[in-house]
Structure formats: structure tokens, C-alpha cells
């Protein structure tokens, strides 16, 4: 449906706006997001204090139509080539207000009841049967990004009611992805994200500042702990297949993270079905959440955290 006389840089329509919305909500902890358009989909990056990042990847498959025209400025090659380009392609990057974007996507009340569990990270999982989000079946959503520097235009059509939102974009402050060194993984655990969610909720009930993650090949195996003014809490996971689907920990490691940052991932924990927890030698933690949507390929959200410096993490 994207009828474009001068082909826009990017145009896509989808009927699963609510899924996209829920993916974006998972990283809605900051007001700004950096969106990278590639021929495979959209990569949304949100970061906090340069020590944690969240990447949500919105796959092309989530869109009914997806047109990405390589930036014409590149003198060589064919510009209007939807999709099929490759890694070398120069990605299109822009920053946009995530708050506004989320607001737009739920402008028809797609996520009315959500906030009550959302921000606090407490409570229950995503919406019940009568959640507006579930009830809302129809409705399509169109994204358009005309050219570098132009606004992001979102057109929502809900049973004939059409809303057009124009979001200003601006040049992103470029931040490199937090790297995780795959060769030196000290910890690789895959588990149901509800367990993690439960553990984090448990720890957050007392106001704590630091989360300590301990993984070892023997006894406590995998434990999360935190202490605050009211006391301390430790959640330990036994090395049980039913609990930890994958557990690769060659040696005992212990890292500390700022709890407030970890809590940014709480929404993702609540919504996703599985989480892969990886840590490298320097303590960089990656939490990759698999978010399944009914009858579709799963989407992934990746959170990366830098640990507190090792010396501070070793002292008790």
C-alpha cells in the first residue's frame, strides 16, 4: 500500500502494531530511541548512561510490506532496490522520541491497561483476556521515513479512523554497541524468563542498589543476590534441567551490576518466554529475551550491561 511517488527511503505497513508496540515497550525505560533501518528490519536501540543498552530487533517479517530503498546519495549501485541488500549497506540511523512513538502506537487504546504493571516492574504478566490489546484485532499501521532528516510518519488506520502522527527525528548520538566477547564467555544460561522475572521481582521488593550474580559449576550454581537497608535476599537456582535449560559455567564467576539498570529489563522478562543469560570475562552481561507472538517467528530483545569494576565486586 505504500504509494510513493518519489520512493521514500523507508515505508512499511503492518497489522501487528501491537506486537511491535510491546517489543518497543520492553525498552521503554528511556525517552529516546535510536532506530536503525536495514533491509532486514528495524533495530531499535535504547541506552542508559552508556553502561547499558537495549536492542529490540523488529524483523521485516513483522511487516506486511516492507520497502527499504537504499539511500540514493551513494553514487554507485542501484538505489531503488527494496530489501535484498546486504551487510555492507550503510544503515540509516536516526533518533526519535520513544515516548512519543509508543504513544502513537497505542493511540487507539491498544495498550490501555498496560501501565499498571508496566513501569513498576511488579506484578503480573502481559494483559488478560479483556485487555484492549487483545480485543483490538483490526487496524493497520504504516511507517514512513521519507529521507534522511525527515520526520517519521506513522499512519494508523483503525476501522476507518485514520490518525497520522509525525515524529521529528534527529541525528543520533552515536554510541557503539556494548560488545560481548563471545570467545570468552564465562557464563551461559538459558532459562524461562519467568524465573528470572520472579527472582528480580523478589530482589527488588527491598530497595537495593546492586545486584550480584554468582555462577559456579558447583553448589549454588546460579544465584542472584542483593542487599538493602531492610535486609538481604538471595535467590538460588539449582542446576536442574527443568529450571536451567542450558547451564555452561566453566568456573565460578561473580559480577555486580547496578540494580536499577537491570530493572530496565523487567518488562522484557515479563513478556518474553525465554532468556539467554551470557557473561564474558569482563563481566559484560547480555540478557537476550525471546518474545513469542502467536503464530509468528519469535522476536528478540537484547540487553547489555556493564558490570561494576571487578575489585569492587570482589569485596563482600
Amino acid at each position: 500500500m505504500p504509494s510513493n511517488l518519489p520512493p521514500p527511503l523507508f515505508a512499511a505497513t503492518t497489522t501487528s502494531a501491537r506486537h511491535i508496540n510491546s517489543l518497543l515497550k520492553c525498552c521503554g525505560f528511556d525517552s529516546k530511541a535510536c532506530i536503525q533501518i536495514t533491509s532486514d528490519g528495524l533495530r531499535v536501540t535504547v541506552e542508559d548512561c552508556n553502561v547499558m543498552q537495549a536492542h529490540a530487533f523488529i524483523d521485516k517479517a513483522l511487516f506486511n510490506s516492507y520497502t527499504f530503498n537504499l539511500p540514493s546519495p551513494s553514487p554507485s549501485s542501484s538505489s531503488p532496490d527494496p530489501g535484498e541488500s546486504h551487510e555492507e549497506e550503510e544503515p540509516i540511523l536516526f533518533a526519535v522520541s520513544l515516548t512519543a512513538l509508543l504513544e502513537c502506537l497505542q493511540i487507539f487504546g491498544a495498550e490501555a491497561g498496560r501501565d499498571k504493571w508496566g513501569s513498576g516492574g511488579g506484578g503480573t504478566m502481559a494483559g488478560g483476556v479483556f485487555d484492549q490489546q487483545v480485543l483490538r484485532i483490526g487496524g493497520s499501521c504504516k511507517f514512513e521515513y521519507e529521507a534522511v532528516g525527515s520526520p517519521l510518519v506513522i499512519t494508523l488506520d483503525d476501522a476507518g479512523v485514520i490518525t497520522t502522527c509525525t515524529l521529528s527525528t534527529w541525528a543520533p548520538t552515536l554510541v557503539d554497541d556494548i560488545p560481548i566477547i563471545r570467545d570468552s564467555l564465562t557464563l551461559k544460561i538459558i532459562m524461562k524468563s519467568t524465573w528470572l522475572f520472579d527472582a528480580i521481582t523478589e530482589l527488588s521488593s527491598t530497595s537495593v542498589e546492586k545486584l550480584q550474580i554468582l555462577a559456579s559449576p558447583s553448589a549454588p550454581y546460579f544465584s542472584l543476590s542483593a542487599s538493602g537497608p531492610l535486609g538481604s535476599t538471595v535467590v538460588e537456582f539449582a542446576n536442574d534441567r527443568s529450571l536451567l535449560e542450558t547451564f555452561v559455567v566453566p568456573e565460578t564467576v561473580q559480577y555486580r551490576y547496578r540494580f536499577g539498570l537491570i530493572k530496565h529489563a523487567v518488562k522484557a522478562m515479563a513478556v518474553s518466554s525465554k532468556v539467554s543469560i551470557r557473561g564474558d570475562r569482563r563481566g559484560t552481561l547480555s540478557l537476550q529475551f525471546m518474545v513469542e507472538q502467536d503464530g509468528g517467528a519469535p522476536s528478540f530483545i537484547d540487553f547489555r550491561f556493564l558490570a561494576y569494576a571487578a575489585d569492587s565486586s570482589d569485596e563482600e
Partner: peptide, 18 residues
């Protein structure tokens, strides 16, 4: 005060409350 919650599936939660 030490409180330990032992879960059926192998999770152990330990609290120390002041």
C-alpha cells in the same frame, strides 16, 4: 531473621531481614 523459601523446582530464596 533468616527466612528461606524452598521451591519445589529447585529455587531457593533466602532472606535476611533486619
Amino acid at each position: 531473621i533468616l527466612v528461606r523459601l524452598i521451591y519445589t523446582h529447585g529455587v531457593l530464596k533466602t532472606y535476611k531481614l533486619t
